[in-house]
Nucleic acid binder design. Structure first.
Length: 276
DNA sequence: ACCCCTGTTCGGCG
DNA sequence: CCGCCGAACAGGGG
């Protein structure tokens, strides 16, 4: 589930714990979500600290605790953050639980593509990369987009949109939504996009990011009815513009939905795609 | 039983 | 060394 707006939604789930002390830490130290992390050090150091603040950049979250402690979380495919009662009993998939006097802060992830990181230092951890511009920021410019498309000119635009080093927080559904809105066929090579297409792409990226962030919620129910997301997974899903049946195929290794009428596959010059 | 999956990383290859 | 692609990861749900 978690892409840009959903990550922001889950980050806020722990807000009730801000300013409060962690009295106990429960975790599944040997699980994959702790790969590369010293889970025991995390457990020892965080106990007794106070949750001070949190931030999200793209799909990543950083929680700051007193005594120079930092907790990084990535939700992967199935991760979520929840609030539970102080007497919460962690189950199989509750890999990290921070108990406070009034509540428990829960990180749950069944599939474990998510990740927990820990850092003890006066400064933010090295893995908290602030060099990639957030889409909803002044640093995300047409010039940045053009440079990125040029650098990855041979890759399908769908694959390029999924690169977190360029499009912080964009995942599979957002990429399809953006390309549909910009009327660009997902298998087009990034370097082949002309000026008009790049201008449409730039606007669509910012529009989808801004609108979804404004409407944030745990699922897609509240996004505008005329967005592609409501149609893209159902059999017989239709283009919200004119009702053409959407096509679905694996592009760039990911299931991709697009409208064969308004995303002009015939302009894709020799891309072998069956049944167009 | 079998196939699908809103993410990232790594090995192979050109 | 760089960039692209497919597989692997783990488990739940249709």
């Amino acid at each position: 589930m978690p892409e840009l707006a959903e990550v922001e939604y889950f980050r806020r789930q722990w807000d009730p714990g801000l300013g409060h002390r962690v009295v106990r830490v429960s975790l599944h130290a040997r699980k994959r979500v702790f790969r590369g992390t010293n889970a025991r050090a995390l457990q020892r150091e965080l106990t007794g600290t106070r949750l001070l603040s949190s931030a999200a950049r793209g799909k990543r979250m950083l929680f700051r605790f007193s005594n120079d402690n930092w907790l990084g979380l990535h939700l992967g495919m199935t991760g979520r953050l929840e609030i539970a009662s102080p007497n919460f009993h962690p189950q199989k998939h509750h890999h990290l639980v921070l108990f406070q006097p009034g509540r428990a802060l829960v990180f749950r992830d069944s599939r474990q593509f998510g990740r927990v990181q820990f850092h003890h230092s006066t400064t933010a951890p090295g893995w908290w990369d602030e060099t990639v511009p957030e889409i909803v920021s002044l640093q995300f410019t047409r010039a940045f987009l053009d440079r990125f498309l040029t650098r990855h000119s041979k890759a399908p635009i769908k694959a390029v949109l999924l690169m977190q080093s360029g499009f912080s927080g964009i995942g599979n559904w957002m990429a399809d939504e953006i390309l549909w809105r910009a009327k660009i066929f997902p298998a087009r090579r990034a370097g082949e996009l002309n000026e008009n297409e790049r201008a449409r792409l730039f606007r669509a990226i910012r529009f989808v990011a801004r609108r979804s962030l404004r409407i944030i919620g745990p699922d897609d129910l509240d996004l505008p009815r005329d967005w592609l997301i409501h149609q893209r997974w159902r059999a017989g899903g239709k283009c919200p513009r004119h009702g053409t049946i959407l096509r679905r195929e694996t592009i760039a290794g990911r299931t991709t939905a697009w409208c064969p009428k308004c995303q002009y596959p015939e302009r894709s010059r020799g891309i072998p795609l069956r049944n167009l």
